[in-house]
Design a protein around this nucleic acid. Structure first.
Lengths: 339, 339
DNA sequence: ACTAGCACTCCCTACTCGTGAGTGCTAATA
DNA sequence: TATTAGCACTCACGAGTAGGGAGTGCTAGT
């Protein structure tokens, strides 16, 4: 019972602080939430919560503010998920349904997520590694340059331009193309490296330079991780928290410009839990100490392929953001499945 | 002579204000620049400049600040271009030289430009309209879905997925592919629409649905303007001007998230002058009243194909930014030329 | 276990006031 | 006529001060 009320107090503090962005005191607390006890009692609870590290005082004789630990407890045990309204869900569906290709899906998703959460949104490209080869095209652009186009069974297109030292023979190129197609067609990306091991052996010595470079390029294309691309949107929302943001938003903006940082923010949602929340110092990027990251993995069919999420101040609306991230992840998976 | 000194005073005011971001007074001016006259004389000149609208006072008994008109005059008549140092030029060259494809060039360019100007940078994708068709591939992904891949002579690859109502016959698809290739191969994009007018006539009635949708998709691909894509970078630099920015940076950040806005900022550099500068209210986006935009067109070979530029506060280092934008535009043109 | 009361802390706001940078004007000067 | 010296005036800015008030911790009483 006593424990229960303490948790209720913590929840109330988090909710109020998220709403107002101002330290919350005992009196305001009993007024806004019907806790059924007097401010003095609340003060005792608050003192206990402070001892345990869940809340802190910016200075003596100010209200309390949740610590990272407090938010953590709140997210783990106290916060429900605000389900999206059905008009919202319908809007998401319609918005994503009208996208025409993968790039479009990514861009639309990031916009959508930024818009409904009013936070900075991140969306990672789905990984290629489970794809297989549908078609390969080799086309000469000039005497020494050619382009390789790789089409996967999921309809993704990868391209590479290749620069050759020696002039390219159209006949040799056609030969290589035909045999390459025969060798790798319908093969999953994962088995391509092995197949290529013995591939160049079948060609005469004078064709070796060309074969070698084509082979290397293909290998590069199938092993490159397209899922290292992350799209970003809604950075303007950062500016909304004028002074509420400790220090300035500049380091945060700078960090968000680095793809590597974005990947780290998204990447380490290790578990298969539906939504991962990383609060303040918990997240792996130093410049983002005062931000929280809410991520979810999304999948095509059963397999999870990439992550998406939002970044915002630690005093964000966790319940709302978790629900939004989760819902968008679901819809994106579904859309990609259909395509 | 008198006119000359007035202009010199304006120049000095702009330079000092850009350097300090603080209103500049008559005494400071004569100290920092050897104008050879007394503060009182300068004050007369300043009063005249104010009457003409080139400078303004934030409040009585404060120093002067250039107006948009003042910056305009400064840019048009007073500011030289700061040539980049040769190590800088070498760095640009090397940085861009190592890029592998168009996307890479765009991303690298925007980063480079943001870095050397310390402003927000914009780079528009080069237009496709002067390209011609090198190859078209039509590949079935499932019974009702196929993908079209279009390769240009400049090595660009465009893709479209097509959803059909009826199942696709492999034979019909091969037939269409072969004839389509014959019809449009090596043709410039601009003449494709005309060629397609009579294309579907040669096919029997039962193939018409498939032919029609493929034709429509190709038409869409060659007329779509890829140059409507703009990449953005260096937004963190906006946050550097804490209070120096009138109001907040939020509306600016918001505006910069809209592709349409970016296009308008870049797009209307009408003349063929090397660099266009749009100052404060001169630029076509309302939310950007307090920013200036420096743009240049860049070209492949002789033809200009797209724009790039930087966005910053009106009190930016025009000479430096103009030089940087100009130089980067040159190098990008050159790189794209080589590729 | 809870609450009422109370003294205490200390941030925030408003107010005052002196300082100084900067101005415009006038009259003298070259 | 252009320039300059001198001077009174304006007004943002910073420091210092006081009062109010929100909030706390503690103690004693229920």
């Amino acid at each position: 019972m006593l424990e229960d009320r303490r948790l209720a107090v913590l929840r109330a503090i988090v909710e109020d602080y998220v709403a107002t962005h101002e330290p919350v005191g005992s009196k305001a607390l009993v007024e806004r939430h019907n806790l059924g006890v007097s401010p003095a009692t609340i003060r005792n609870d608050m003192a206990a919560l402070e001892d345990e590290g869940y809340i802190a005082q910016p200075h003596t004789s100010a209200g309390r503010v949740p610590t990272d630990l407090g938010y953590r407890l709140f997210v783990d045990r106290l916060s429900g998920v605000k389900p999206l309204s059905s008009p919202e869900r319908r809007a998401i569906q319609e918005f994503l349904d009208s996208s025409v290709d993968l790039d479009d899906v990514m861009v639309r998703t990031v916009r959508l997520l930024a818009q409904i959460t009013r936070q900075v949104a991140l969306v990672q490209y789905p990984t290629l590694s489970r794809s297989s080869v549908r078609h390969i095209e080799l086309i000469a652009l000039s005497t020494t340059r050619l382009i390789m186009v790789l089409i996967t069974d999921s309809g993704r297109v990868e391209q590479r331009t290749i620069e050759c030292a020696a002039p390219i023979s159209e006949i040799a190129l056609g030969d290589i193309r035909a045999r390459l197609l025969g060798a790798v067609s319908a093969q999953p990306f994962s088995s391509i490296p092995e197949i290529l091991l013995t591939f160049s052996g079948q060609f005469p010595a004078e064709m070796q330079p060309l074969v070698t470079i084509i082979q290397a390029t293909l290998l590069d294309a199938v092993t490159e991780r397209i899922d290292e691309r992350v799209v970003l949107g809604g950075t303007a929302h950062l500016a909304r928290y004028g002074d509420a943001f400790p220090l300035s938003i500049q380091p945060v903006l700078e960090a968000l410009e680095e793809q590597v940082v974005l990947l780290r923010l998204l990447g380490e949602s290790s578990t298969n839990a539906s939504v991962t929340v990383r609060i303040g110092h918990e997240n792996p990027v130093e410049a983002m100490e005062s931000t929280s990251v809410v991520t979810a993995r999304y999948g095509i069919g059963d397999s999870t392929v990439a992550s998406l999420g939002v970044v915002g101040p630690t005093h964000m609306d966790y319940a709302g953001n978790i629900a939004a991230v989760q819902a968008v992840a679901q819809y994106v998976g579904r859309i990609l499945d259909e395509q």
